[in-house]
Design a binder for these strands. Structure first.
Lengths: 375, 375
DNA sequence: TTGTATGCGTTATCAG
DNA sequence: CTGATAACGCATACAA
């Protein structure tokens, strides 16, 4: 260790004598100290020159900048983070990355973060409370400046989020928000989305409409179910408790959806249509109906939330409710950066609610039909 | 600034005198120094106690650990990074996150990274060389320990990757690999995948099979095209240059695919089937044919690479070649961590080649048909 | 067994 | 205009 240190200390002067131009610097990274030593200046001078400080003479600046350029100097971001107590990176916790909705949202997050010089550190809860909390802990031991979260379906206890927020960590929730934490939130109009979809099913002649939603704990589930119920009520259809099912893990496991579908189909009066109230549940239902050889929508109508880039192309069976995931990610990140970079604590928090797209198939027969997009 | 510092210095002793138990520590993070001061120990003792060093007495250890627990101490990872010259985070550069293949790969990457205590920092090149290089620069100013890359379609100049690798940065390429950099690589058998798909089209009776591939610069494109050509040759079908098209940006922009498709359909002898040689190109083709009201596969056969979770469900039109993206991500990360944590420089590099899945539709008529999966 | 001093790379403060 | 020094939080070689 000591010899290594010494060798480093002695390497550079020798290097100067021989040839400044092509110092190898294979593994050792270039630091301000190296520049200072090579140029016979102090580190503070070099630092100031690099930051283009007014107190440095033009000649010195030029000298330093040129040399820095030549040896390909880059400031060590970790040292900067330590000093400035900020890492210029934001953490993201979602249920799973390989999910169209979330990956589109992350796309939006990364776009804005990148434009503002922030890194994005992602982690997945896989709908598990435990994993979520571990990530929360891990990310927030002061290695991130802010956090964007869509909570896990399992999560019932929001204390850790609340504590963290109270301690001053900027947090923005999107999609699955925590209603009783007072911070920025970004969602779509879940009520309206579910309402429109249900109404569309009714207009197509379906009478016995069932709904499969994500965990009851999530506010988005409650809102979506409320929209579904309202649409039924408005059309004078009586809601049936046995027609509403929940998947505790948001359909992450197919068996969960299978169970819900079976529960619906085993009833004396079967539903004639299913409204799937989340991405995974939608594709899950589709998959299950397909494997059971139940024709969609001839035997059973199906409509659901989905952000897959192929849903618009699948047809005729499936109509979908699509969330503006990319925009949601962008907006969430914008709000977060605002929180991070505002000097004084923010007191007014916004809840941005975007409109979901309803993409419908007009005909279930014509192979060439075009989707109709309703905002 | 100075008063802030002073207040911090004076806060703790006062705090000790009043009540240790519920120091607020709202925004100020707890450090080893705080523990030392509160307990009347030196920072080194505290540090050693926390790391369970053998040179510390059991009583002191207990004291320190309990107090640390109580005030919810967490070591500052940034300080650790600075000291240990490692950040315990790995960088990932892909074309775009909102792409089934890449998001599945990232899923695998995150899984393994998480298990090993590493963070994943993601960034997207959006197929642009410039963006890729900026990210490369940004990530690698020593803030990451290693890098997992699938290069942008635009990239023709791999010098920066090579230099970085030569400087000792562990890099693992996946999917779109850089053949002349000697490091670990993870791909599928692109040749075989394209070969099987082409062969399948021929067996289904298609004679005039065209191919649309990603940028010619990418080795995966060349391999896939080679597989396509070999299959044609083996069945005694003459290849036609005019039937092979390339999208410089891998179909990221739909117009690019549109152009390729138009180019094919405008020829005197039109192709009767299209082989799409990347994810985006496959969905792009599907979208374009749909919008032009060209029936698939009755008017034109279509088969392509795709990792969307819905492709298996779409049918009958589309048969697909699916890559084991998740596993590729896992393997790449495993290899990378091996590189990062091996003390001595690795000399033997592996190229892992996985088998792609070919998921076929046997019938183009029966709505209820099941996909056949060929390994 | 514990404390002191040092360094990781950077910048801010203060003194020339 | 420039240099020495301290500090960010932590761990360790060395001294006691």
């Amino acid at each position: 260790m000591f010899t290594l240190l010494m060798s480093k200390l002695y390497l550079y002067p020798a290097c100067e004598l021989i040839n400044l131009r092509d110092c190898p610097m294979k593994f050792e990274a270039v630091t301000i100290k190296d520049i200072a030593k090579a140029l016979g200046l102090s580190t503070s001078t070099v630092s100031r020159a690099l930051r283009d400080s007014y107190e440095i003479s033009p000649e010195t600046k030029k000298l330093v900048l040129e040399y820095a350029e030549k040896i390909n100097y880059h400031p060590n971001p970790i040292a900067l983070s330590l000093r400035e107590r900020r890492s210029r990176s934001i953490g993201v916790i979602v249920a799973e990355i390989a999910n169209s909705f979330f990956s589109q949202a992350i796309d939006g997050i990364e776009s804005i973060a990148y434009k503002n010089g922030y890194n994005v550190i992602i982690s997945q809860s896989r709908e598990s409370f435990e994993r979520e909390q571990i990530h929360l802990n891990y990310l927030t031991s002061r290695s991130i400046d802010g956090l964007i979260v869509s909570v896990a379906s399992e999560t019932k206890d929001f204390r850790n989020f609340k504590d963290l927020h109270d301690k001053g960590m900027p947090i923005v929730f999107f999609d699955r928000v925590v209603t009783d934490i007072d911070t920025h939130k970004v969602t779509v109009d879940n009520y309206q989305g579910a309402y429109n979809a249900t109404r569309h099913l009714i207009e197509k002649g379906f009478k016995q409409i069932a709904a499969i939603a994500n965990s009851e704990v999530l506010s988005i589930s409650r809102e979506r179910v409320a929209g579904y119920k309202a649409a039924l009520a408005d059309q004078g259809i009586k809601e049936k408790d046995s027609f509403i099912r929940h998947c505790a893990h948001g359909g992450l496991i197919l068996s969960e959806v299978e169970e819900a579908v079976s529960g619906l189909l085993e009833q004396k009066t079967k539903p004639d249509a299913i409204l799937a109230l989340s991405d995974k549940i939608t594709t899950g239902c589709f998959r299950i109906l397909k494997s059971r050889e139940i024709a969609v929508p001839d035997e059973i109508g199906l409509i659901g939330f989905s952000n897959s880039d192929l849903t618009e192309l699948i047809g005729p069976p499936l109509s979908i409710i699509k969330q503006p995931a990319f925009e949601m990610g962008e907006i969430a990140t914008g709000l977060l950066l605002q929180l991070i970079e505002s000097k004084r604590p923010v007191t007014e928090f916004e809840t941005k609610t975007l409109a979901p797209q309803l993409i419908l198939r007009e005909s279930s027969v014509n192979k060439k039909d075009r989707p109709v997009i309703i905002r």
